[in-house]
Simulated scan of single mutants.
Amino acid sequence: MYGIEWEALEMIRTVVPVGLATVLTAAGVMHFIWAFSPWPMKDTVTFTKTIGGTDDGVMPSAASAMMVGLALFGGAVLTLMVNESIPSIGPDWLRLVGMYGLAGVLLARGVGGYFMNSGAAAEFQRWNSVLYSPLCVALGVLGGMVAVAASRRY
């Protein structure tokens, strides 16, 4: 019995934080790309219908896309600091509060994302329901796991 518990805890301590940080970093990179390009979509109208939820073809401002990208990078770094994978700055309690906050924001985007479907472009509704919101919920759960595991260490 203790072997199973230890294996689960070890996975939370190793695989979960690295996986979470990797996905947050990838999402951050995408937001930086979107500050300057509609890639991987062919044009801005397709981008806004699929990713932005509108039919107008007006891309989000570069500044807002980069702010989201920086927040995602920050979440990745915070995850690795809380997990003690990289050197930490600041007090333990503040990093822990930040980790719980990250988990809460991701969960809120995931659950709240379904309410974003009302009035949004059909392509966005489909992708939001199948990928964006479920991904945010999953990342929020992983963030919560990292936070709880760190709470037990501190």
Results as ranks from 00 to 15, higher is better:
139 L>Y: 11
51 I>H: 13
12 I>A: 12
97 V>E: 08
48 T>G: 02
95 R>T: 10
111 V>F: 15
134 P>A: 00
153 R>E: 12
83 N>T: 14
66 M>K: 09
35 A>E: 05
117 N>Y: 08
119 G>N: 09
67 M>W: 02
31 H>R: 09
93 W>F: 13
122 A>Q: 14
7 E>P: 01
34 W>E: 01
83 N>F: 06
4 I>G: 02
14 T>A: 04
78 L>E: 04
45 V>S: 03
10 E>A: 09
110 G>S: 07
57 G>V: 07
32 F>H: 14
17 P>Q: 02
91 P>F: 14
102 L>E: 04
81 M>N: 04
20 L>I: 04
107 L>H: 11
102 L>Q: 06
40 P>D: 10
36 F>I: 03
101 G>F: 05
137 V>W: 08
103 A>N: 05
114 Y>P: 11
118 S>R: 14
126 R>N: 14
2 Y>F: 12
140 G>P: 06
134 P>C: 00
35 A>S: 13
70 L>G: 03
42 K>M: 06
105 V>N: 01
41 M>T: 07
98 G>F: 10
116 M>F: 09
66 M>V: 07
94 L>V: 14
137 V>A: 06
130 V>Q: 13
84 E>R: 15
13 R>M: 04
73 F>V: 01
23 V>F: 14
22 T>F: 13
73 F>Q: 03
42 K>S: 15
24 L>V: 06
95 R>N: 14
111 V>H: 07
68 V>T: 11
96 L>T: 11
152 R>C: 06
54 T>M: 11
81 M>L: 00
142 L>S: 14
